[in-house]
Amino acid sequence: MSTKSSLFWSKVRQALRRNHNDQVEVEEEQEEDVYIPQPDDYPTFPPLPPRDLFQDPTHHFNKIAARKFGGPQGEYEDKPLYALYRFYEFVVLDNVTNYRNCLEAFWRQKGWPVDGIPDPEDPDPERYAFLAGCTFLMARAFNARVKLGLDRNMPSLLIPEEAEALRNRPHHLRNYEKVPEWAEKVAPLEELLVVPTHEGEVLTGKEDKRADPDFLDKGILLWTPHIFFT
């Protein structure tokens, strides 16, 4: 083999080694970039009871905000019960923006009637009562929209004539929501659960006009949430 030929193949081998090394580095970088889910990326199911959540609201909200998934690990499809528990957490923490977002997201799930939410059969009495109260909030929020002529089954875009027809539809033909039977049957708490606002304010008592009536029926003193959205 001539000197020129040897030099040429030496350069080729060097170039191949460089390409191989570059490819190894790229593959190593890609492996480093591969996302591996961590336990904290998923919600704990069921979540903490109300008292535990509002004892340190900032800490718990930061943990919730850091999640990457809406359901527990191993679940790949969202369900009404997971959505209810997410809503529950934000109502307990009095995080208005997020519980309103939860309501709107639930509204858009056309196959999720409020009265179709399964019974969580939650073993914690206070959390169970709070979950029941949350279904009353959902029904009230959605029915306020139905009263305006809106419908969960309507398309996202309407021509003016369609919108007018919905507004003029008789009320007995509208799809008003109902709370689940299990929520109506949940017994009120024996000891009143007093839930503070995100600023730590508490209501004066059951006679306070700002108290939510449906939660009071479940033995929970809670400032009526801002549940109405457009």
Score class of each variant (00 low, 15 high):
residue 124 D to L: 03
residue 209 K to C: 09
residue 55 Q to A: 10
residue 136 F to T: 03
residue 12 V to F: 07
residue 98 N to I: 15
residue 184 E to Q: 13
residue 214 D to M: 03
residue 50 P to A: 00
residue 14 Q to Y: 01
residue 67 R to V: 15
residue 89 E to G: 04
residue 111 G to Y: 15
residue 96 V to W: 06
residue 87 F to N: 07
residue 28 E to I: 09
residue 197 T to I: 11
residue 162 E to I: 10
residue 32 E to C: 03
residue 6 S to E: 00
residue 114 V to M: 06
residue 229 F to T: 14
residue 88 Y to C: 03
residue 176 Y to E: 06
residue 213 P to K: 14
residue 59 H to F: 12
residue 101 N to I: 05
residue 76 Y to G: 13
residue 99 Y to N: 06
residue 171 H to N: 13
residue 145 R to W: 08
residue 210 R to V: 05
residue 129 A to Y: 00
residue 61 F to P: 02
residue 179 V to E: 12
residue 46 P to R: 06
residue 119 D to S: 15
residue 49 P to V: 01
residue 49 P to S: 01
residue 11 K to L: 11
residue 147 K to S: 15
residue 38 Q to L: 15
residue 185 K to Y: 10
residue 61 F to K: 05
residue 204 T to W: 02
residue 45 F to R: 12
residue 47 P to I: 03
residue 228 F to L: 15
residue 32 E to Q: 03
residue 130 F to N: 02
residue 213 P to N: 10
residue 57 P to V: 08
residue 203 L to A: 08
residue 13 R to C: 07
residue 8 F to E: 06
residue 58 T to A: 05
residue 67 R to Q: 15
residue 16 L to T: 03
residue 105 A to K: 09
residue 79 K to G: 11
residue 79 K to P: 06
residue 180 P to A: 12
residue 33 D to G: 04
residue 98 N to V: 14
residue 84 L to F: 09
